[in-house]
Design a protein around this nucleic acid. Structure first.
Lengths: 340, 340
DNA sequence: CTGAAAGCGCTTACAG
DNA sequence: CTGAAAGCGCTTACAG
């Protein structure tokens, strides 16, 4: 019973020409009224604006883009394998990106890639469907980074890339992990096991670096036998836990929440109590860790802000403004029952 | 050291005109060679195709779209609130959609909406940036459904909508839940509590319906006091668990995995053992449920297939082909330790 | 302050 | 089998 009865039912295919004709002005004038660019009389502008509001005309972003050689799209590149696809990180990031991009009239085009297949990204780029790209994460030898660099396509990488040419943004994983481990060390905990995911992901290297630095800063030696990388949910991870328990570590630090959940399950299965038998901490938080029994000490990052800032930087980059080569975002440490 | 040295460094801004000129043919001919439409001599076609391969020219999808009044984009609409954004369901779906859409040269444009803000979707539609839309989930009074219907924009809804005009696809939640509850009843379990999420989501209604039908089929009465909807992770959920335990239910069924994880934590905190004190089952599976201790009986759906099929249907719809008003997808039930 | 015209990079009747 | 020309829906120098 609202206003959805009248003449506006699918008043769709109206073009700038229709508006111009109806008003007896030129398309140029209509364009100017809408864009706000170029001189135009107030009366004329208002007349046009009123008309398009009442007839709810909306310009085609596609046509506008063609005329300006822009697409008003940014590419969002995330892992498309079933293993890592459900990582909440990327979803939270996306919220931030959309919050930033939408008011600027930009849309987000997703491409799903895997370690050795970036065809969806290539399609988006070669078909000229994006003005810039945000990489959701970076790999050690990243095909996407190489490709985008090669194409001269503006992009910002979420992660850490050893290349001054790559505009990048990252949580300060290294410092965060160093600080968390330092805290443990200060509590008198020395034998700290580390279980991490794929060493192909740059974030793994950053976290490992932080772990190492904490020991070095404390004047201690890093026991390499306490470090297990490339742990897989099924097989390798359980073995790592076994080894670490055998080595009688006092605490197991997991590089991300998914590894942590699995490690906890493994410990439970073996009847090990947390924190009395072994303490647990995670380099990445999640609700289930935070609200688990016991609650788990973990690092907290503001993921939506990562996305928001990545997008802001990309927008500036596209517009040719000067942007920082690298920006680092903060974190905080939540000490919980698992390290008591 | 590969072929990335030569003349193809950012051979970007080549247009169909450049190709035509270089070859001494018309743009029409180049277009025909690429699209495969219209008569063209084999020799000519090959000449053109060879040239564009060697100089890796790729047409602008934007320009092509404008000429054909198409965008080659489909909209993907998902919740953008921080609560539900990280639900793995939507990510898995997206993989399926991308798998289907990408080979057809379609790209995916995401819009994040909330129960009462669909502005991102509206932007995508009014700016003419999508040819069709897939709704990631449906609500009881869905603004997006209403809007798209009103705009005459082709779309398929993942979920259940009581409206013949809405092309929809869904997992068969109702049957799946009925079957799972029937199984429990057949085991002699009669007092079965149910904890569900927002009743604003149509999926909640479907699952509840299945729960009810199981009792009715068994000739039993549904005890409405055992049903708790709109449970929130923090407050309401714990209360629901308390009430159900007080009522001495034999089994608690959770409507989704996130509720289930929280319920389990609550039970642990209270020192209740699963399954000896109370059994647990979930209407939606997740790795952490499956691999938890104890492992949790749950319903399994093939989420990527939902996305894939939704996309296939939309493609047909856009092309004007006849599509089914409603398609229902299968499931399976995994009986685990939590109901032993 | 306003408009005619060319152009963005394609496609597609229409002719030949 | 091939091409000239108009058109998709906008923008933007250039003139006035």
């Amino acid at each position: 019973m609202d206003s959805d009865i009248g003449d506006n039912k699918s008043a769709d295919k109206m073009t700038i020409g229709d508006v111009a004709e109806a008003l007896g002005v030129s398309k140029t004038t209509v364009s100017r009224a809408i864009s706000g660019k170029g001189r135009i009389g107030n009366a004329t502008r208002d007349k046009v604006l009123d008309f398009i509001n009442q007839h709810n005309y909306t310009p085609s972003a596609i046509a506008k883009g063609l005329a300006q050689s822009k697409t008003y799209n940014i590419g969002w590149v995330i892992p498309g394998d079933y293993g890592s696809a459900d990582l909440p990180f990327f979803q939270k990031c996306l919220i931030g990106i959309a919050e930033m991009a939408s008011p600027l009239q930009y849309d987000i085009l997703v491409s799903m890639v895997s370690e050795n297949d970036i065809s969806q990204l290539e399609r988006a780029v070669t078909n000229h469907k994006v003005d810039g790209v945000i990489l959701g994460r970076t790999m050690e030898n990243d095909l996407a980074v190489e490709y985008l660099l090669n194409q001269g396509m503006p992009f910002v990488a979420i992660g850490t890339v050893e290349n001054e040419c790559v505009v990048q943004i990252d949580n300060d994983h290294c410092s965060a992990c160093r600080e968390l481990v330092s805290l443990l060390i200060m509590k008198g905990i020395r034998r700290i096991g580390l279980i991490g995911g794929s060493s192909a992901h740059t974030v793994t290297g950053q976290r490992l670096k932080g772990y190492r630095e904490a020991f070095i800063e404390a004047g201690l030696e890093v026991d390499e036998d306490n470090i297990f990388l490339d742990a897989e949910p099924g097989f390798r991870l359980d073995k790592a836990v076994d080894s670490l328990m055998m080595r009688k570590v006092q605490c197991i630090v997991c590089m991300d929440d998914s590894i942590c959940v699995n490690a906890i399950n493994k410990l439970k299965k073996d009847g090990a109590e947390i924190p009395s038998d072994v303490k647990i901490a995670s380099f990445f938080n999640s609700p289930q860790l935070e609200k688990g029994i016991p609650s788990i000490t973990a690092l907290n990052f503001d993921t939506a802000t990562v996305g928001r800032e990545a997008c802001r930087i990309l927008m500036n980059y596209i517009e040719g403004k000067e942007v920082n080569h690298r920006t680092l975002l903060g974190y905080d440490i939540a000490i919980k029952d698992s390290t008591k």
